[in-house]
């Protein structure tokens, strides 16, 4: 399922705002530090970013406001031209693509959802969703048929003739999602798609999003400033601060091995049982077992079983081999957030 082939990657991407950033970068051998950037009167929106987004995964970019998330994702889709670096999509360097090639790639392979929906006010739901196809010059009947399909997919059937302003925020973002899916993109960018919604709706939309992804298996770059959201959705998370990516890893990685105090601070209030897997709280195998759990099982899901048993559970890997055991005490430690001495520090 999760192919390990890389769909989209970037290497050494810089985006500096201000006067003559190229000259500045060249002068500092493409490795300036924060002080010299500030001294030169520049803003380092993205600094030396390296990421690899794998086929079919949800890659979340997470960071506080102003940390450069939007700028990074705009570099990946080349909505802004990076000051330096390369962006490889399907083996092609996007920064070398001509204007016409870029138009083709965006028309057929990329989709984007925006924080404030970016719906066209003069078009109905149907018109908005069909718009990307209209731009490609597809005939009205064909594009409206396709649009109706995706409108149905996001649960907006019956609202086709509404104008955006007649819809609630959640419904508007459903339109935004449907619209970005109309062209069947290979890579799907979502820039804080749920931040403008209130918490209840946000929750509902996250579920909806996961439902869609389970059907569609898109390669996704998802931006958020909400760590809970990141954890709920992400296969892997990149954490950004002041333009720098400070750590990339699975939610569990970030919780168990935060690279810096900054990351640890983020992960502090995370419900650990939902993040940690059996593998990260197990101890060396031995003794006899009440049953088996898989390495990837989340503690929260197995807690009831393990707690109820009077003996530890065996932890088995994909090939069925026992790689360790998980005790009742370990599960309780995770649930109450106590340091268990397993490297799982808050």
């Amino acid at each position: 399922m999760k192919g390990s082939s890389v769909k989209l990657s970037c290497r050494g991407v810089w985006k500096l705002f201000g006067p003559d950033p190229e000259v500045f970068l060249a002068r500092h051998g493409h490795e300036p530090d924060n002080e010299s950037i500030a001294e030169a009167g520049l803003i380092g929106a993205v600094c030396a970013a390296n990421i690899e987004v794998r086929e079919g995964e949800i890659f979340v970019i997470m960071g506080l406001s102003g940390s450069g998330k939007s700028t990074l994702v705009r570099c990946l889709s080349r909505l802004v031209d990076p000051t330096a670096g390369e962006v490889i999509f399907d083996g092609q360097d996007l920064l070398r693509a001509s204007e016409a090639e870029m138009i083709e790639i965006r028309r057929h392979k990329m989709g984007m959802v925006f924080q404030h929906f970016a719906l066209l006010p003069h078009l109905t739901v149907l018109g908005n969703v069909a718009f990307p196809l209209e731009v490609q010059g597809i005939a009205r009947a064909a594009r409206e048929a396709r649009a109706l399909e995706v409108i149905d997919l996001v649960g907006l059937k019956g609202r086709e003739s509404y104008y955006p302003r007649e819809l609630s925020g959640g419904q508007q973002q459903r339109v935004g999602i449907a619209r970005s899916l109309a062209v069947e993109p290979q890579i799907w960018f979502l820039d804080e798609p749920f931040s403008a919604l209130d918490p209840l709706i946000r929750r509902e939309m996250q579920d909806e999003f996961m439902r869609l992804q389970n059907m569609l298996h898109k390669t996704i770059v998802f931006i958020t400033h909400d760590f809970d959201e990141a954890i709920r959705l992400a296969d892997r998370i990149a954490i950004m601060k002041d333009g720098w990516i400070i750590q990339i890893g699975t939610p569990e990685n970030l919780v168990t091995a935060p690279a810096t105090g900054y990351v640890a601070e983020f992960t502090k209030d995370v419900p650990r049982a939902k993040v940690l897997s059996a593998a990260s709280v197990m101890e060396p195998a031995g003794g006899d077992y009440a049953g088996e759990v898989a390495t990837g099982d989340k503690v929260a899901d197995i807690a009831a079983r393990v707690e109820a048993a009077d003996r530890p559970y065996a932890v088995v890997d994909d090939s069925g081999e026992v790689v360790g055991r998980i005790t009742r005490q370990a599960v309780i430690d995770v649930l109450v957030g106590r340091d268990s001495g397993n490297g799982v520090k808050p």
């Binding site: 138009i103 984007m112 404030h116 929906f117 731009v135």
Partner: peptide, 15 residues
């Protein structure tokens, strides 16, 4: 016109 709308237009590949 909101930047997002402009970005959207570019993302769907408008000439």
């Amino acid at each position: 016109v909101a930047d997002e709308i402009v970005d959207f237009g570019r993302m769907v590949g408008c000439t």
